[in-house]
Amino acid sequence: MPQRVDHDQRRRVIAEAVWRIAADRGLDSVSMREVATEAGVSLRLVQYYFETKHNLLVLALRYLHDHTEQRARERIEAQADQSVRGVLRGVLAELLPLDPETEFALRVHTAYFSRSHSDPELAKVFLHGDTPLEDLVTHLLEQGELAPGVQPRFEANLLVSGITGLSFDVLHERQRSAEVLATLDYHLDRIFGPAR
């Protein structure tokens, strides 16, 4: 009996090869041949699943988004017994390169961000109009007891953009993760009042 092929798993293996090349050398180093070599598969298999380099880059990015969202959902579920502030801190800290996996994901996202400036088609996927993270942070803020005058959406925009920017400082060793987490706690104290 012929063995069943898990096509989604094969696509993920190829997408992960794109991520490794992007994280180490940038998206300009991604070619279908390089990806095939990195993934340990034939060039024909990469071409069969993705057809063009652009499709390969876009689908690898979508897989990365799915992976990142799954990790964030697991983090939120693991913190279900915490306060809204605690869950929010965990969600935002997940954006920082505090472990090898989040550092790797940030390096891949950086490669895509850099490429999005010169590739309008890729920018449509990478810089789409949706704001799922800001929406999530807004929703969490709306669940908590906030200091008077706090506007959840404005705070969400500031928290997400601030942590995103500070994550690059940690990645490039301009700041230590402890300093960035202290900055995050400062802003959460301002929004919620001091942690108890």
Results as ranks from 00 to 15, higher is better:
64 L>V: 09
33 R>C: 04
32 M>N: 05
65 H>F: 08
56 L>A: 00
64 L>G: 11
78 A>K: 13
30 V>M: 01
81 D>M: 12
34 E>T: 08
45 L>Q: 03
73 R>D: 06
71 R>H: 05
79 Q>V: 11
35 V>A: 03
65 H>R: 14
66 D>H: 04
47 Q>H: 11
42 S>F: 12
82 Q>Y: 12
78 A>V: 11
41 V>C: 12
51 E>A: 04
67 H>S: 02
28 D>I: 04
83 S>Y: 04
46 V>Y: 01
47 Q>W: 10
67 H>Q: 04
46 V>W: 00
58 V>K: 01
78 A>Y: 11
31 S>C: 03
33 R>G: 09
31 S>H: 05
77 E>Q: 15
41 V>R: 15
46 V>D: 02
73 R>A: 14
32 M>T: 06
78 A>F: 12
42 S>G: 15
68 T>G: 03
65 H>M: 08
74 E>G: 11
31 S>E: 07
67 H>Y: 06
32 M>I: 11
44 R>F: 12
28 D>T: 09
82 Q>C: 09
77 E>W: 14
76 I>G: 01
74 E>Y: 11
64 L>E: 14
49 Y>M: 03
63 Y>G: 02
55 N>R: 10
78 A>H: 15
42 S>A: 15
43 L>R: 12
37 T>C: 07
45 L>P: 01
84 V>H: 03
52 T>W: 06
81 D>G: 11
37 T>F: 03
28 D>E: 14
70 Q>N: 08
81 D>I: 10
81 D>Y: 14
73 R>M: 05
45 L>F: 07
75 R>C: 06
38 E>L: 03
83 S>Q: 02
65 H>Q: 13
43 L>W: 10
29 S>V: 01
79 Q>L: 15
31 S>F: 13
68 T>D: 09
62 R>F: 02
